[in-house]
Design a binder for these strands. Structure first.
Lengths: 174, 174
DNA sequence: AAGATACGTCAATATGGCTGACATAAATTT
DNA sequence: AAATTTATGTCAGCCATATTGACGTATCTT
């Protein structure tokens, strides 16, 4: 039988320097995210797509006109990695590119109705899970959850999407 | 300029069937988890390890005596995928195996002090982020956050670790 | 003795990351 | 106008991590 640590006291782990480590929240985050993305994974298989495709089409749908460079910032991957995935989504008609008005070098990305439909379907699955999770939590509690999640995010160098999410409260440039 | 959806109202997205989708929480989870695992990623590089190694050594440290099969359940990967990563951790002295007492087919996994030290270091980084995130949240609020995360997790077929986390409240077998 | 289980391993394959180099078009700077 | 920088695309190759299917061995169960 494996040891069964309780949620607060550190019972056996090393705890360098004797600090209290937040094992419970660390593991809850792992499992919560595992199951959260698992919802979409199954659906994506039917389309021959993976998580990478989901992330791209999601943010393009949500933030129409996103530049390739913005997407690279958000996803924290390289141009080459994005390239393959983005090309597939373009070829299969989930995304279209438009040349930028001000800067004609830019390729602004837009989801097609087909792309939006896929994103909505996946977001629906994830929304169902979230709604189930907050079913027993009052509005103030849900706001606390949002506050926690927001505070977990690095804000020293926010990408374009994060600036939108955080309401442009800290424009470091432009 | 990209559209900038506010946190509640659905301004442009497809919303299949007109349902309210929880875009805000979906995206907060993405960014929070991205940055949360990012903390460990940098440290891991110095050891020549990746996320896969972290997950394995973490759960072995936390739940000493975990069987290989348990680990497969928790990580949701195949035996073959686990094989290489586990072998590396064994070869490099982060983990040791002991033959099960009752069942000599089992290889029970234990972290060495070296393994525990690495896990503690990584958990320390993640704990720092969590502590920063909950700094402005009262104890009741933190409990709400735990409640939310717990409720995000599938419990229909809990693995051994989840049974421990959830206090064995629903033993489907054994 | 037969079968099931726990684990390990071999072989082949796919996905999604990475680096480095290079090309093009368009904007910006000098 | 020329030089430089920027935004993007692409080629070639490598690495980590995941997959499936098959097979072998030790051990437990029936």
């Amino acid at each position: 039988m494996a040891a069964k640590p309780d949620s607060q006291g550190d019972d056996h782990a090393p705890a360098a320097g004797g600090r209290d480590l937040r094992w419970d929240i660390i593991e809850l985050l792992f499992f919560a995210y595992r199951d959260f993305v698992g919802d979409a994974d199954q659906e994506l298989e039917a389309f021959g797509f993976g998580r990478a495709h989901h992330r791209v089409i999601h943010f393009v749908t949500r933030y129409p006109g996103l530049k390739v460079a913005d997407l690279l910032d958000v996803l924290r991957i390289t141009k080459q990695s994005l390239g393959r995935v983005l090309k597939q989504l373009l070829d299969e008609g989930y995304i279209v590119q438009k040349t930028g008005n001000n800067d004609r070098r830019q390729r602004l990305l837009y989801a097609t109705p087909k792309g939006e439909a896929l994103v909505a379907k996946l977001a629906g699955l994830q929304t169902d899970r979230i709604n189930r999770a907050i079913a027993g939590i009052d509005p103030a509690g849900v706001e606390t959850v949002r506050q926690f999640l927001r505070a977990m995010i690095d804000r020293d160098d926010p990408d374009k999407v994060l600036e939108a999410i955080f309401g442009g409260g800290r424009k470091t440039r432009e």
